[in-house]
Amino acid sequence: MNCCNNPKVFELSNKKLCKEHFSEYFESKVFKTISQFNLIDKEENLGVALSGGKDSLTLLFILSKLAAKNPKIKLHAICIDEGIEGYRNKTIITAKEFCKKNDVPLDIYSYEKEFKMSLDKMLKTLDIKPCTMCGIFRRYLLNKKSKELNFTKLATGHNLDDEAQSIVMNQFKNNLMASARLGPISGIKKNRAFVPRIKPLYLCSEKEVATYAFINGILDDFTECPNVVKSYRAQVRDMLNNFENNNLGTKNAIVNSFLEILPELKEKYKFGEAGMCKECGEVASKDKCNACKLLDRLEKAKTNS
């Protein structure tokens, strides 16, 4: 039961799809996700976190189609330049070209400028897992800049694989509280310290996203960050991919069963008004935010060396 007679580009569990029908399938999955979880309202000043990788470019590509039909939805891309030599400098060029071509405003913020140190340099200064360090500062900047730019929401390119990995990682680390912050939309509370995040590619697998990006001429080089091999996430990712290969549908099952218990999780771990960092005014669980704590440690390590 295939779609038509054209050459096929993707194999689903029950059929194969050609270029055109796969794109149709993929786009309608994203639009369905958006409406099912109420991700986007009729009027938005929507930020899009753009890394220049396949996920965020695909996200922006599809959101541009949505915005073209809905003039009250404004898109604005922001890109974080961590300072990863041989990787991010390349994806940023891709991001710039893409925004120019699609007529989307783009702002770039670098660790070098905002924290006076690139990620490469930070990793030489302090012995912390790369993705932990990288993630704390990126989340910090994305939220801070989203507020400054008055975004009503921030869309990110997280896909099904990312979510399945996060769910399993939090289980393995006995950290359900972190899982309560997952899901296709988070931070909806009337908490102005935190700009809500949405994940329109929530139900699309990594392979689906890559296929869509490739056949639509969005990107054909999927080079990954040189630091990722060291992460805990990469271990879980490889395990899940092996599992998926032997048991088709595993990742879908993880995410779908998670969605069923997510409302209870959110209820159990209700986040009240978030605290505020004494140093920078950003969201913090105690009186200092994770980014400021990390900056203190970096400063100390620097003076000791």
Binding site: K54, C131, E206, V209, D220, E224, R233, A234
Partner: peptide
């Protein structure tokens, strides 16, 4: 995956997995 290969084919395999 079921595509039959021919002599002298040039095949590109692209990893789709991404970052942390």
């Amino acid at each position: 995956e079921n595509e039959i290969l021919k002599d002298k084919d040039e095949i590109k395999i692209m990893s789709v997995i991404s970052g942390g």
